[in-house]
Design a protein around this nucleic acid. Sequence first.
DNA 1: TTGAAAGCGCTAACAT
DNA 2: ATGTTAGCGCTTTCAA
Lengths: 362, 362
Amino acid sequence: MSRTPSRASPAPLSGAGSQLQPQSQRRPPRAADGASIAGVAEQAGVSVATVSRVLNGHENVRAATRDKVLAAIDASGYRVNELARNLRTAESRLLLTMVPDFGNPFYAEIVRGIDSVARQHGYFMLLCDTGADPGRERSYFDMLRRRRADGAICLDPATIQQALGEASQALPWVACCEFDPEMGVPYVGIDNYRAAGDAVRHLLARGHRRIGLINSDVDYLYARQRQQGYLDAMRDAGIAPDPHWRMNLNSLDYAAGASAAARLMQRPDAPSAIFAVSDTLAIGVIHGLRSVGKRVPADVAVAGFDDISLAAQIDPPLTTIAQPMRELGETAARLLLQRLANPQANVPGVLLPHRLVIRGSA
Amino acid sequence: MSRTPSRASPAPLSGAGSQLQPQSQRRPPRAADGASIAGVAEQAGVSVATVSRVLNGHENVRAATRDKVLAAIDASGYRVNELARNLRTAESRLLLTMVPDFGNPFYAEIVRGIDSVARQHGYFMLLCDTGADPGRERSYFDMLRRRRADGAICLDPATIQQALGEASQALPWVACCEFDPEMGVPYVGIDNYRAAGDAVRHLLARGHRRIGLINSDVDYLYARQRQQGYLDAMRDAGIAPDPHWRMNLNSLDYAAGASAAARLMQRPDAPSAIFAVSDTLAIGVIHGLRSVGKRVPADVAVAGFDDISLAAQIDPPLTTIAQPMRELGETAARLLLQRLANPQANVPGVLLPHRLVIRGSA
DNA sequence: TTGAAAGCGCTAACAT
DNA sequence: ATGTTAGCGCTTTCAA
C-alpha cells in the first residue's frame, strides 16, 4: 500500500524567489568553478582514473604523477563531488538518529556520543526529531530504503519501534535506550528495573513509606520497567502503594512535572517522597512542590533519573540515577557501524551500568 | 593550498566486522530488492521516462498508465534511489546548521525552528556541533563545495565567521544570532545592544548601582554588543562601573556561571545585582551565589538572557530577556531558502524583537 | 603505473 | 502521452 512518495513538493517560498529566474538552463548547473575530475585530469595531463586514485589515496601512483595531480587540484580549487561519489559507491555516509524530542537535555548528550563516533568513522549524523509520532518515524525509516542514509539509531518508544513491523528488521538500524529484546534488533540501554528499584530503596532507607511515582507515557518500555521496579521495591518493603500515588504523563518537560506534583499534593494522604523518572520532570516537580508551599526535601523528598548536567545546579541539588549518556550514544553508533560493516553477523544487545547519585533533594 | 582531502579513512572498527566479509563483490551492491526504475518500467510495460514522470507527479501521464506504474511500484516495493536523483538534479536537499554547542537549550529551540521550515520545503537538516572551533567550522563549510549540502546556517561566533574569508561569501549560507553586517551575508538576530540595556535599566530601576556583568567570550559579537549596552546604560545612570565587576567566560554552562559568581562575591565591593548574558549562566550564578551563602534576590539580584523554558522553573524564577528563538531559526531557514531559490537577489538582514520578562530573581 | 571505458539510477530534452 | 537516449561525476575493472 505505501507507495513511493513523490518528491516533497517544496511549498512556494513566501515572497521573493519566484519571479526572477532567467537562469532556467536546460541542464543541471555545472559545478561552480573547480569543475569536475575530468578538468583536473586534463590540467594535469593524466586520465580521470589516475586523478581518482590520487583522490582516494591509492598506492599505485608514481610520486611525480601524484604531484602533478595535486598541483592541478590546488590550482583549480577542485573539490570532489560527493553526490557522484555516493551514487557510484552506493552509500550516503549518513547515519540517522531518531529522537522523540531533542530539546530534552538527556537526548542531547546521547546524540553527542553518537555524533562523535560517527565522525571518527567518516560518517555524518542526521538528527531527526520524530516527536514520538509513528507516522514521522515511519517516514524517516523510509530514508533507509531510499538510500538517503546508510543506517539508523532509534530512541523512540518501544511501542513505536514494534509498530514498524517485521519488514523493518531487515533494515540496518539499532535501538538505543528503548528496545524490545525480542525484536532481534541490536540495542544498548540500562537495566531500568534495577535502577528504579535502587532509587526507591534509597527513598525507603530515608524512612519514606508514602512514595509517589511520576512516570512518563507507558508507550515507553522504560516507563513500564521503572514502574515495575518501583512496585517491587515497595512490595519488598512490605508496602502496598496506593495507585493514586502513580501518575503517567505524556510529556517530559518541566511544566508537566510541576503541575503533576501540585496535583499529587492535593490528596489527603499525599506522598512524602516522589520518584520522577526523568530529571526534567523532577526539576518541574520541585518547582511545583514549592508553588504549593512544600519544602524540598523537608516536606517532600524528590529523586530524579538521568543525571543531566543541570541536576547538580538546582536548589536543592537533585538526587538521581545517573545514566552513562555519552557511552550510550557511542555504543549505539558502534553497534550500528558493526552491523553496517558486517550485515550478517548478529550484533548483541548490551546493558550499561547506572549509578545512584545522592544529593540534597532526597 | 588546502587540497581536497581524500575520503576520511574509516578507522578500523574495534572488534568484529573485519574478518568475515566474503560478500566483497566486484561492483557496488545492487539495490536490495525493489531494484531500479528500469525494473518498475519493465513490470509496468512502460518506459523509464514514464515511471520517472509518475514518480515526480508530472501531469502529462494518462490516468490508466499512471495506475499501471503505481501498481508495479506497490508490487515491487520500489523506492527511489535518492543518491541517483541527487546526482542528476545536482542537489543534496540537505541544509547544514552549525552551532557552537547544541547541548545549550538556547540553540536547541533555534534548531527546531530551522528544522521545521527546512522540512516544509523538502529539505533535511544536518546538525553540526563545531565547538566554536575554526578548523571544524572550515571543514563543515567545505561540505558545501563538495556538494554534500546545498546551503548552511551558521550560529558560530562572528570572529570565526570572519575568519572564513572572502571566498566563503560566494557560498550559499546565512548567519543566525551572530553576524557581521559588513560581511554581506544575510542574517537574522536581535538588537543585543538595546536588549542588554533593557536588562540593566531594569536592575537600575530596582535601585541597584553595583551591577556585575557575567559575559561570554568576546569572540561573540553579541558579547561585545551586550557589554556596550551594559556600559552605556550604567553611564547614562551616572555610574562608572568598576571593571572588576565584569567577567568574560569561555563557557556557557551552568558550572561556569556558578564559579564566576562565587569569585565575584569575594570582592569587598561585590555587586548587589548580576546580569548574566545567558540563562544557563544565570542559573549557574544563582547556584554559585547560594553556595557562598547569598540569597537571591534579597542579597543579590540576578537577570539572565534568552528565556529558555527552564528559566521559569527554577527558584527563584529568572528575570530575563526573551529572544524569539523559534522565529530566529525559522527566519534563518527562510532566508537561506530564498538565497537558494534566487542566488543573485540580495537577501536582507533582519532583526527580531526581544522582550524583558520580569520574574522573581530581579 | 597508467588509461579506456563501463556503468551507478535517475531526469529531462527531444522525438514521436 | 509516451519512448529513446544522453548524460550527472565518479570509481573500478580490465587491458596495456
